[in-house]
């Protein structure tokens, strides 16, 4: 194989500058993806989350039974809290296959874990997304405007941060009413200060840069400067924190459901454990499945978040 450049008759001697021009332009996303793929833990996190996201999206197709359907009367001779029945491991052909067994209400645990993934992960994404949007707006205004506005907004954030997040979430859901929307709101509200602080720090760091001054001199609007010139600098830490935050949100949803703040009617992993945790020693399979689901999802987000942080960090990419 011959080298392309030296054989081209009109090709000048490029030197170092020419090599830069010939390379594909740098891309934050491509570089990040490359960085992530270089890290084994991030790849593992991505794989775990990929599986769970797939399950959440196609939950209706994957769940073999209605998660609220009692097998009583449908499956003759069935016992409550029946252990897993898996064909490969000898489950009789005349019985339905329940790979995670049945709970005390004769419901298929696997179907409930599958459907539960939709709420647990879905609320996590929605709550963190909402927190990022609101927190970023607050942080950007506080950082860019500064002065008294900054002081007021940040003290408000300090007040929210002063409460233990789970306790505050319980108070919010109790006050607003225990439904999924309010649960999402509560988790979102307690997360806002973190994102506001991150964005504020980035904005303060960037607002006096030359390119911002130049934009201002060219008459670009404040919103334009914030959105087009300054905010891109804050995206990286937001993504990292948001990824880690979703894992935390999943845990908080489980905790809220466990303490009964989220209605036990909602099929979440936390509510499954809340209803059945007394069977820890007599029928551990019932709470093992949602417990492991929570563990793996949180682990997945943590691994991916760590990977993203490393991938986005230029010092680690040298």
């Amino acid at each position: 194989m011959t080298d392309h450049h030296p054989t081209h008759p009109a090709a000048p001697e490029y030197g170092d500058a020419g090599e830069i021009l010939s390379t594909r332009p740098a891309s934050l996303w491509r570089d990040t993806l490359t960085g992530i793929l270089r890290q084994r833990s991030a790849v593992v996190g991505l794989l775990i989350l990929g599986v769970f996201l797939f399950v959440a999206v196609f939950a209706d197709q994957i769940a073999p039974f209605d998660p609220r359907e009692s097998m009583l009367g449908i499956e003759p001779g069935i016992q409550k809290q029946a252990p897993p029945c898996i064909r490969l491991l000898g489950c009789p052909a005349d019985r339905f296959e329940h790979i995670f067994g049945l709970d005390t209400n004769f419901q298929d645990v696997f179907s409930r874990v599958v459907i539960g993934s939709r709420i647990s992960i879905g609320i996590g994404f929605a709550a963190v997304g909402m927190a990022i949007v609101i927190g970023a707006a607050i942080g950007a205004i506080a950082g860019y405007v500064g002065g008294r506005t900054d002081n007021i907004l940040m003290r408000l954030m300090d007040i929210v941060l002063a409460f233990p997040s789970l306790l505050l979430a319980i108070v919010i859901v109790s006050a607003l009413g225990s439904n999924l929307m309010n649960t999402m709101l509560a988790i979102s509200i307690v997360s806002i200060p973190v994102y506001a602080r991150i964005v504020r720090a980035s904005v303060i760091g960037a607002r006096e840069n030359d390119y911002v001054t130049a934009s201002r001199a060219l008459g670009e609007s404040t919103t334009g400067i914030l959105v087009r010139r300054i905010m891109p600098n804050a995206i990286t830490p937001l993504i990292v924190q948001g990824t880690l935050g979703i894992g935390t949100a999943v845990l908080e949803i489980a905790a809220l459901a466990f303490v009964g703040v989220v209605s036990l009617s909602e099929i979440t992993w936390g509510s499954m454990i809340a209803i059945e945790f007394q069977r820890l020693f007599t029928a551990p399979h019932i709470i093992l499945a949602p417990g492991l689901a929570i563990t793996f999802v949180v682990l997945g987000f943590n691994l991916l978040g760590d990977g993203l942080r490393d991938a986005f960090d230029p010092r680690l990419n040298r």
């Binding site: 009692s70 225990s178 009964g260 209605s263 036990l264 009617s265 809340a274 209803i275």
Partner: peptide, 26 residues
């Protein structure tokens, strides 16, 4: 003897037997 489990059973029966949707309010 088991409040959430019995509440869940009644909720399921109301849905299955009568078509009434219920939510558990602990």
């Amino acid at each position: 003897p088991d409040p959430p489990v019995i509440a869940t059973e009644i909720s399921n029966q109301l849905k299955t037997n009568l078509g009434i949707k219920t939510t558990l309010d602990l």
